[in-house]
Computed example of a mutant assay.
Amino acid sequence: MVLVNGGEGIGTGWSTYVPNYNPRDIAANIRQLLKGDTRQPMDPWYKGFSGTIEKSATKKAGAGYTVSWLN
């Protein structure tokens, strides 16, 4: 459910940010995992969002994303 709803928080000396992902992409990757196939990378997704989400240069801790809103 963290992948669907996302999560953000600060613990003792650690912080985390997990963006929302499309439930259909999550289900497809779970099916791939159960079959023993390779999973597809997922990009953040927000229901009703009409802007763009683009993967930017990889940062030390993982992938970064550039989010742009359409006017």
Results as ranks from 00 to 15, higher is better:
residue 21 Y to M: 09
residue 15 S to F: 08
residue 40 Q to S: 12
residue 45 W to L: 00
residue 57 A to L: 08
residue 14 W to R: 14
residue 51 G to R: 09
residue 33 L to W: 10
residue 46 Y to Q: 12
residue 31 R to P: 00
residue 44 P to G: 02
residue 25 D to V: 00
residue 24 R to A: 13
residue 42 M to D: 00
residue 40 Q to P: 02
residue 22 N to I: 01
residue 23 P to T: 11
residue 2 V to K: 11
residue 51 G to D: 12
residue 34 L to C: 07
residue 39 R to Q: 14
residue 36 G to K: 01
residue 57 A to P: 02
residue 48 G to A: 06
residue 13 G to V: 08
residue 22 N to T: 02
residue 16 T to I: 15
residue 37 D to V: 02
residue 64 G to I: 01
residue 33 L to N: 04
residue 27 A to L: 14
residue 10 I to V: 15
residue 36 G to F: 08
residue 12 T to A: 08
residue 13 G to A: 06
residue 29 N to L: 05
residue 28 A to W: 00
residue 23 P to R: 03
residue 31 R to C: 05
residue 57 A to T: 07
residue 35 K to H: 12
residue 7 G to A: 15
residue 27 A to S: 11
residue 10 I to D: 08
residue 5 N to P: 00
residue 40 Q to A: 07
residue 5 N to H: 13
residue 57 A to Q: 11
residue 25 D to K: 04
residue 36 G to Y: 05
residue 43 D to V: 09
residue 25 D to E: 10
residue 19 P to Y: 00
residue 7 G to V: 03
residue 41 P to H: 04
residue 69 W to P: 00
residue 24 R to D: 14
residue 28 A to R: 05
residue 22 N to L: 01
residue 6 G to A: 04
residue 43 D to M: 11
residue 49 F to D: 06
residue 16 T to Y: 15
residue 43 D to C: 05
residue 17 Y to H: 11
residue 49 F to T: 07
residue 67 V to A: 12
residue 33 L to F: 06
residue 9 G to C: 00
residue 40 Q to D: 10
residue 32 Q to S: 14
residue 45 W to T: 03
residue 8 E to L: 04
residue 2 V to M: 07
residue 66 T to E: 13
residue 44 P to I: 04
residue 40 Q to W: 05
residue 5 N to S: 14
residue 43 D to T: 10
residue 65 Y to R: 05
residue 25 D to I: 00
residue 52 T to C: 08
residue 69 W to A: 08
residue 49 F to R: 06
residue 32 Q to N: 09
residue 46 Y to A: 05
residue 59 K to R: 12
residue 10 I to H: 09
residue 23 P to M: 06
residue 61 A to L: 13
residue 61 A to C: 01
residue 59 K to G: 07
residue 36 G to D: 09
residue 36 G to A: 02
residue 61 A to M: 06
residue 53 I to Q: 04
residue 62 G to M: 03
residue 56 S to A: 15
residue 44 P to M: 01
residue 69 W to G: 06
residue 34 L to S: 04
residue 10 I to Y: 09
residue 38 T to R: 11
residue 52 T to Y: 03
residue 35 K to C: 06
residue 55 K to P: 01
residue 31 R to K: 10
residue 13 G to W: 10
residue 12 T to C: 04
residue 31 R to Q: 13
residue 38 T to F: 03
residue 46 Y to L: 14
residue 8 E to V: 09
residue 15 S to M: 11
residue 45 W to D: 03
residue 28 A to N: 07
residue 14 W to N: 13
residue 67 V to D: 08
residue 50 S to M: 12
residue 61 A to I: 02
residue 22 N to S: 05
residue 20 N to V: 03
residue 41 P to L: 04
